[in-house]
Design a protein around this nucleic acid. Structure first.
Length: 271
DNA sequence: CTGAGTGTTCTTCG
DNA sequence: ACGAAGAACACTCA
C-alpha cells in the first residue's frame, strides 16, 4: 500500500485528527516497529502537542511542540486508523498514540516492516536517510541530471529514494507505461523527449493517485495498474485487465531489479 | 503447503 | 571504493 499517494492520504487523515491535540500516552503493542526506544519515544511524545503534519516521499511527520518530529514510515503494509475503545482497536495495531481528548491513533502494520522514530527535524531525517526531493517536487532538470549519471536500468533508478523520494514499485511501472518507456532501458540512455515524458508521467500518476486517495480501483482505465489484479477491475467479468489499455497487447510480467514488473511490450519498446 | 507481496537495508560480488 | 544484485526481514493471504 504505502507509496507516496497512500502516505499523503494518511497524512491528511492524521492532520485532521491530531493537529492541535496533546499526546497523552503512547501504547506500544509491538516494539519491533520502534527505532527510537520505547522510553525515549514516550519521553519525547507524552505531553507534547502536534503542531502540523508533513510528508516527504513515503514518510509522514508529526511536528511536535518540542521542536522534534515523529517520523512514521509504513513499510510494505502499514496503515493508520483511529478508535476510542480497546475493543475497537484495529487488528495489527503495533503502536497506539493516545490523544488528550480520548481518541487513539493506531499505527497498523501486519508485516512489521514499518518504522517509528523521533528525529530532530524533517531536514535532519532527510539527510540521514539520503532522501532526494519529494517526487512531486522533482524538477525536469533534476530528473535529467540524475538519470544522466546512472548506467542502471531505469526502473531501479527511479525506485532509488535518493533520486526522488516516494516512487514505489507500482508507481514506477505506471509512470514508465504512461511515458512509453521500457523498464529495462539504461537510465542514461533516455533522450530529452523521453525524460520530459517521464517527468510529465510522474506528475500525472502521483496527482491522479492522490486525487483518488490511492484507491486503485477508481484509477482511470488507461492505467496499467489494473493488470496487477489487486482490486476488482471496474468492468466485472472481463479479462481486459490483462491487456494494454492503449493497444490491447498482452501485458508482460517479469522481474526487473528483483521486483515484479508489468509493462506493454508494444508501447514500451526495449531499444 | 507454497509462493508472492506496495519497502528498506545489509551483505556479497564484481 | 563503488555500484549493483540478492537476500533478509515478518507475516498474511490466495
Amino acid at each position: 500500500m504505502p507509496e507516496l499517494p497512500e502516505v499523503e492520504t494518511y497524512r491528511r487523515f492524521l492532520d485532521a485528527l491530531v493537529v492541535g491535540q496533546r499526546l497523552a500516552a503512547v501504547e506500544v503493542l509491538d516494539a519491533h516497529v520502534l527505532v527510537t526506544k520505547e522510553a525515549e519515544l514516550r519521553a519525547a511524545l507524552v505531553g507534547a502537542t502536534v503542531l502540523a503534519t508533513q510528508r516527504l516521499g513515503k514518510n509522514c511527520f508529526l511536528e511536535l511542540s518540542t521542536g522534534q518530529v515523529l517520523v512514521l514510515h509504513f513499510g510494505m503494509t502499514g496503515d493508520v486508523g483511529a478508535y476510542r475503545d480497546d475493543h475497537d482497536r484495529p487488528r495489527f495495531t503495533r503502536v497506539a498514540f493516545h490523544l488528550a481528548d480520548g481518541l487513539r491513533v493506531a499505527f497498523i502494520d501486519p508485516r512489521k516492516f514499518g518504522r517509528i522514530r523521533v528525529a530532530d527535524s524533517v531536514a535532519a531525517y532527510q539527510r540521514e536517510k539520503h532522501l532526494g526531493p519529494d517526487a512531486l517536487d522533482l524538477s525536469p532538470e533534476e530528473l535529467t541530471a540524475a538519470l544522466g549519471r546512472r548506467k542502471t536500468l531505469v526502473k531501479p533508478a527511479l525506485l532509488d529514494q535518493r533520486l526522488a523520494a516516494g516512487l514505489g514499485n507500482w508507481i514506477v511501472d505506471e509512470v514508465l507505461f504512461q511515458a512509453g518507456i521500457h523498464p529495462e532501458r539504461i537510465a542514461a540512455s533516455l533522450n530529452a523527449a523521453e525524460v520530459s515524458r517521464l517527468h510529465a508521467a510522474i506528475q500525472l500518476v502521483l496527482r491522479t493517485a492522490i486525487e483518488h486517495e490511492a484507491s486503485y480501483q477508481r484509477f482511470p482505465l488507461s492505467f496499467i495498474i489494473h493488470a496487477r489484479e489487486w482490486d476488482a477491475y471496474p468492468v466485472p467479468q472481463s479479462d481486459d485487465y490483462k491487456r494494454c489499455p492503449a493497444d490491447q497487447s498482452t501485458i508482460v510480467k517479469k522481474y526487473v531489479g528483483g521486483r515484479a514488473t508489468y509493462f506493454c511490450p508494444v508501447c514500451q519498446k526495449e531499444t
